Each structure stands twice: as structure tokens, then as C-alpha cells.
Amino acid sequence: MKDEPLIELRAWRQFLAVAEELHFGRAAQRLHMTQPPVTQAIAQLERTLGVQLFDRTRRRVALTPAGEALVPEVRALLAQARALPARARAADSGEAGRVRLAFVSTIGFDRLPGWVRDFREHSPQVALELVEATGDVQLEALARGDIDAGLLLHPPGAAPAGLARLAVATEPLVLALPAAHPLAQPPRPALAEVLAEPLVLFPRRILPGVHDAVMQLYAEHGRRPQLAQEAIQMQTIVNLVSGGLGVAWVPASVTAFSRAGVVYRRAEELKGEGRGKVRLPSCETSLVWLGQGQQPALARFVRFVKARAAAGEDGRG
């Protein structure tokens, strides 16, 4: 199939003027031209297209079916052309564009929904595309250029190297227990008893630093965890706990996931040895992106998240 000839916008403007006026003289006045060039331009357009666009008589000008079909398309084409300069300026300033954002499920439990809602209200011309992914998958996607930024978990102060970063939240791990388990009943369970229970845990490859912190917790108390099951998503881990497969250590934000059959216990709700306080590992959530060649729309999103994180807003209001 041969390429169709490229028709300039000027010819389409002339066509639309004649189509709306149905009079060559009035169309010429509207275009600030004399009539002969308009008549010649329409004749040339018809030759280029190979179809007649107007029926002409001495008394009237009427659109043919082909001309009638083109009118709404040409109106839309010219409207798009008029919008292009403003669109370019909006993209350059970050008011328009696209941000491909990956996120871990924990940030999706509380902060992220409100952030997405408010950012879309704040910047309606920026398309915010979301995909849930674990931290290891996010880092690979960033390296390939498949995403623009990611919200991922890591130990406090130990974000992946080589990336620009904005810390958005720090939270402790909490204990998830089957609601029917004896340790879920009063009084407070002893940490030593909890560490003897089967453990549901995420694989090390998706959260190596936090995984190591959990292992260290057991080692500090002379225990080796009895691993019952590994699962990637926090929702799955909580569901397995609900099913009685074991206990789990999860970020505090997961408590927003109210799963029947699961109770959560924070550090102050656990008994340490003697009168000692229980200290549980923490984890941090950061927004990360490639530092070089930052797109204006991404810079706009980073500024928005920075303001929300600094205000301590969790997005649930």
C-alpha cells in the first residue's frame, strides 16, 4: 500500500471554512484571502484526495458525502494542532506527562491511595501509571527503563546504592499471630515463646536487609527460626498466618490490612526477659529513581511526595 500524500494544515483550514460557510466568498473573507486562491486550494485538495468534497452550482455550494464525513475529523485535527504549543509547554514544566510508578504492597495499605488521589487532582494532565512489585523487581525495572520510580522497603538508612532517594516513612516490624493461637490471648506473650513458633517469612531476595534483621532478632535470643513457609506478598503472609501456619514479622503498616483470624502485637505488647523492653527491627520506605535525566513530570511527582511525607500525611483522610 502506497503512502498517502501529506496534506498541510492550511489546506484543511481552507476546507473547513468552506464547509462551514458553504460559500467560497464568505470563506475567503473568514480566511483573510481573496476567493480565487481558496477555490484553487479546494480543487487541489480534491485532486490530491481523488474525491469530490463539494457540489458546486451557480446558486449553491453543498458538501458531498465524502466532504460531510471529513468535517468532524478536520475540526478535531485543527483543535489538536492548536493545543500543541500549550501541550509542549505543559510537558516542559511537568504539568503534563507520564510517571510509571512501582510500589510495594505495604505503602499501598495506607499512604499511597491518598497520595494518588490527591496528585491526580493536583496534576490532572500527568498520567500516573501504577504497578505493584517487590523491591528486587523494581530495581530491575528501573535498570531497564520500564518504570520511572519505585516505592520500596529497606532497612533504615540502607537504601539501594546508585539511585536518587526520598525517604517517606519509617516503621517498626510487628508480630502477626493467628487469632486462635494461645499466644494471641492475654496476658502479653513472651518474645521467647513467640520465637519458638513456626515462622512465615518473605524470601531474602526481595528484602535482604529486613530479612537479615529478622534473622538477627532470632540469633540475639539464641534461636534459629523454624521456617514454616515463604511468601512474597505481605497479604499472602498474613493470610497464611490466619490459616494457622505460623507467626510472622511484618511492617506496622500491614496492620491496616484487617484480615479475620489475625491479631497484631507491637513491641510494647510483648514481654522481654526479666523487665527488659522488647526491641524489634524497623524498616524504611523510600521513593527511588534514576538521578540523571529526570523527567519534568517525575520531578513534579517527587516534589509532591516530599511535601506530603514532610507533613506526615498518611493519605487516609
Rank of each mutant, 00 (worst) to 15 (best):
K2E: 15
D3K: 13
E4G: 01
L9H: 14
R13D: 08
Q14F: 01
F15H: 03
A17E: 10
A19L: 09
E20V: 00
E21I: 01
L22C: 04
L22V: 02
F24H: 11
R26N: 12
A27F: 10
P37S: 02
Q40I: 06
I42F: 01
E46G: 04
E46Y: 08
E46Q: 13
D55N: 09
G67H: 13
G67V: 05
E68K: 13
A69T: 06
L70N: 06
V71R: 01
V71E: 07
P72C: 07
R75W: 05
R75P: 14
A76Y: 04
L78A: 10
Q80P: 00
R82P: 00
A83S: 15
R87W: 04
R89E: 15
A91V: 06
D92Y: 01
G94L: 02
E95A: 14
R98I: 12
R98N: 04
R98F: 01
F103T: 14
V104T: 15
S105L: 03
T106G: 00
L112K: 10
V116P: 10
R117L: 09
F119T: 11
F119W: 07
R120Q: 15
V126R: 11
E132V: 01
T134A: 03
G135C: 06
D136A: 13
D136F: 04
D136H: 11
V137R: 14
L139V: 02
L139A: 01
E140I: 00
A141D: 14
L142P: 02
G145E: 09
D148W: 03
D148E: 08
L151P: 01
L151W: 10
H154C: 00
P156W: 12
P160F: 05
P160S: 06
G162H: 10
A164T: 08
A169W: 12
E171W: 02
V174M: 08
V174T: 15
V174R: 13
A176K: 04
L177E: 15
A179Q: 14
P182H: 03
L183G: 10
A184K: 11
P187R: 05
P189M: 01
P189K: 04
L191G: 07
A192Y: 04
A192P: 07
V194I: 11
L195Y: 12
L195M: 08
L195R: 14
A196I: 00
E197I: 00
P198W: 03
L201D: 12
P203F: 05
L207R: 08
H211W: 14
D212M: 02
V214G: 03
A219Y: 09
R224I: 03
P225V: 03
P225D: 09
L227F: 03
Q229H: 14
E230W: 07
I232N: 07
Q233R: 13
I237F: 07
N239A: 14
V241H: 07
G246S: 10
G246C: 05
A252W: 05
T255W: 08
R259S: 03
V262H: 13
V262I: 05
L270F: 09
R275W: 07
G276Y: 11
K277A: 06
K277P: 01
S282D: 15
S282Y: 08
S282R: 13
S282Q: 14
S286T: 10
L287S: 04
L287A: 05
L290H: 11
G291E: 15
Q292V: 05
Q292I: 01
Q294P: 01
A299L: 04
R300L: 08
R303N: 11
A307L: 02
A310H: 06
A311R: 07
A311W: 12
D314N: 02
G317Y: 06
